[in-house]
Design a protein around this nucleic acid. Structure first.
Length: 430
RNA sequence: GGAGGGGUGGCCGAGCGGUUGAAGGCGCCGGUCUUGAAAACCGGAAUCCCGCAAGGGAUCGGGGGUUCGAAUCCCUCCCCCUCCGCCA
């Protein structure tokens, strides 16, 4: 959520910042309601001040045995007026809140302005391998190995789900373990295990609600019970762990890593990536989350990107880092770097991680503050999140990058200790 | 699921419907004393909102209501605890 006060004081700047993100028209409405609300507050508070004085007079008169009937009659009318005005203010509060919830975060000044075409490649690592044969897409590699099964997944659920058999399932688990170990042992993150179902308020805190409800799986609760939502990413519960808390500056930055499945409806993605495991309703992800002070949050973003990159480097998967343009960023983000892994089967770089600094956008919604070490009033923290990495897509990348002509797949060295030193996954002999 | 109990400041904990923004204790900050510290004593300290300011308003789990006036009464929602039942 963007600070209303900031919008009030810099309306043009805000409108300009949101040109490529949508929501410029909201700013005008917001300013209108905001100014009306403030006038109303000033007026009603004068009435409340009067009420407080007279009420005190009534109390004293009663104590002295006087007759405050006249004052009480006056106050009855005033009380009604106050109630009416308060109701209007509440309504305006609701309108402002609703408008603010619709408004995406303001991009950082270093972010290129424009749509996808304005994204900027920052660097590349690794060289895509030259294949002496036609590299197959992962679904062919996986099905031939008997480890990927989309048909049975569709039978159990529907399309965009998958079943992993044998070494495939183990590979998924090994990757998860490897990533968690790397981030906890070498990168200083604390592992945390969290609920996979959260309430609407938590979803609002990180910005999933109210705008993106159609992307979420929602439970059907009996009459009178509040529904829960399946998390689309661990970012949601992990970022909100400290919702409503005021932390000490000394405790910052907090660095958390969590493994969870992620559930997404992928509404509006019809026709995209329909084959294979690229875009699923359910996938595993190791997520990095940081809470930092504004002074350090961009350094923390840089190190988070580096931490995610390290996973790809150790797996020897070629990738590139892309700085997303204003129009391509997520709703809550002020600045985002995507990591894109090379997929030989598609001859393309595809997103495998997205690391964002949301600055105070989520912290303001969730009420996550810190008390500066020097004293003074509590400020909102900056929240960051990034995939470290999407496990399913990493598995895909391995299948495609390390496939051999005979249909087997070489297991990356760093994963072998997690797989009883398995060096190669081979197709069933028959 | 059934039956009870409870949510007050950083923490514990009082609180007849009217000087209660809120006793008391602990903790915290400053001072006196001390070589230094502890103890003792004195003092200080909440947050948000409106306003250029003076100042004002709001806040005792959330939201409504009753009343001239609500931490105190009523309704409702949320959360926590205890016992019983069920259960991986």
């Amino acid at each position: 959520m963007v600070d209303v006060k900031f919008i009030r004081e810099h309306p043009d700047e805000v409108a300009r910042a949101l040109e490529t993100r949508g929501g410029e028209d909201l700013v005008k409405k917001l300013l209108f309601v905001d100014s009306s609300r403030r006038k109303r507050i000033t007026a009603v508070e004068a009435k409340k001040a009067l009420r407080n004085t007279v009420t005190e007079e009534i109390a004293q008169a009663k104590r002295r045995g006087g007759d405050p009937t006249e004052q009480m009659a006056r106050m009855r009318k005033l009380g009604d007026e106050i109630k009416e005005e308060d109701a209007k203010i509440r309504e305006e509060d609701r309108q402002i809140e609703a408008l603010l919830l619709q408004l995406p975060n303001l991009p950082h000044s270093s972010v290129p302005v424009g749509g996808v075409e304005a994204n900027r490649e920052v660097r590349r690592w690794g060289t895509p391998r030259q294949f002496p044969f036609d590299p197959k897409p992962h679904w062919e590699v996986g099905e031939r190995l008997g480890i990927l099964d989309f048909e049975r997944a569709a039978k159990l659920a529907k399309s965009r789900f998958s079943v992993l058999w044998g070494s495939g399932a183990r590979l998924e688990r090994a990757l998860t373990q490897f990533m968690l170990d790397l981030h906890t042992r070498e990168h200083g993150y604390r592992e945390v295990w969290v609920p996979h179902l959260v309430n609407a308020e938590t979803m609002r805190w990180t910005g999933q609600l109210p705008k993106f409800e159609e992307q979420l799986f929602k439970t059907l609760e009996p009459e009178g019970e509040r529904p829960l939502y399946l998390i689309p990413t661990a970012e949601v519960p992990v970022t909100c762990l400290h919702g409503g808390e005021t932390l000490k500056e000394q405790e910052l930055p907090k660095r958390y890593v969590a493994f969870t499945p992620c559930y997404r409806r992928e509404a509006g993605a019809a026709g995209q990536d329909t084959r294979g495991m690229i875009r699923q309703h359910q996938f595993d992800k190791v997520e990095l989350v940081k809470l930092a002070t504004p002074a350090t949050s961009y350094d923390e973003l840089a190190s988070m990107v580096a931490n995610a990159e390290e996973v790809l480097r150790r797996l020897e998967l070629p990738y590139r880092v892309v700085l997303l343009a204003t129009g391509d960023m997520g709703f809550a983000s002020a600045k985002t770097y995507d990591l894109e892994v090379w997929l030989p089967g598609q001859a393309k770089y595809r997103e495998i991680s997205s690391c964002s600094n949301c600055e105070a956008f989520q912290a303001r919604r969730a009420g996550i503050r810190y008390r500066p070490a020097a004293g003074g009033k509590a400020e909102f923290v900056h929240t960051l999140n990034g995939s470290g990495l999407a496990v399913g897509r990493t598995l895909i990348a391995i299948l495609e990058n390390f496939q051999e002509a005979d249909g087997s797949v070489i297991v990356p060295r760093v994963l072998r200790p997690y797989l009883d030193n398995l060096e190669r996954i081979t197709p069933p002999s028959s």
